[in-house]
Every structure is written in structure tokens, then in C-alpha cells.
Amino acid sequence: MTGEVFPADGMLSLEPVVVGVVLAMAVVTYLTKVGGMWLVRHVELSERLEAGLSVLPGAIVIAILAPELAAGGPAEWGSAGLVLLVMWRTDSILLALCAGVAGVVFLRALL
């Protein structure tokens, strides 16, 4: 933890303090990953709550996407449109991804 460039023989070094912090990070992250599932499994869900649960997938997708696209520019918007178009025409996520990434590289260079 000197902050200097590590010497070559230090590549495999594992400092106990660092390992401890990393493992603590792993535990915290794991708790966030299982927390929601655990809660939903251990709470008696009414139909009303089930309805709320059922809109989560779409809502999460939009909540991730919207601010990201809003922060982007014409290159990102155009590429997002391209992904939609390719998805609609081919139904292949792989093609859509390739088109989107190629599109964003191209449009960023262009715009």
C-alpha cells in the first residue's frame, strides 16, 4: 500500500489488510444481491404486492436506461434506435449488440 508502482515480484502479493477489505466488500455485495430475494421469499405476498413485483423488470430496465441515455448525446440516441430496429427486424440480441456498439463508435467519430 505504498501507492507506488508495484515491483514485478509483487504481482502475486496478498496483503492481509487488503484481502480483508476485499472480502468485506464481497460480503456487502452478496448481501445486496440476495437481500431483495430473501425479503420477497419471506414475506407473505398479497396479490397487490405481487402486482408491484410484476412491474419491476421493466421498471428497472427503464430506470437504468433513461438517465444513461439522457446523459448521452445524438450518438447514443441514434445507436439505441439502431438496437431497437435490429431487435425488431432480426430478434437477435447478438446482432443488435454488434449494431449498437458499431453504431456508437461510428457516430461518435462522425458527430
Partner: peptide
């Protein structure tokens, strides 16, 4: 956010 994603899989 992962909590919410996990719940959506339930």
C-alpha cells in the same frame, strides 16, 4: 439496486 433485481427474479 441488485436487491431489486433479485426480487424481480423471484
Amino acid at each position: 439496486r441488485y436487491s431489486l433485481m433479485g426480487a424481480a427474479l423471484e
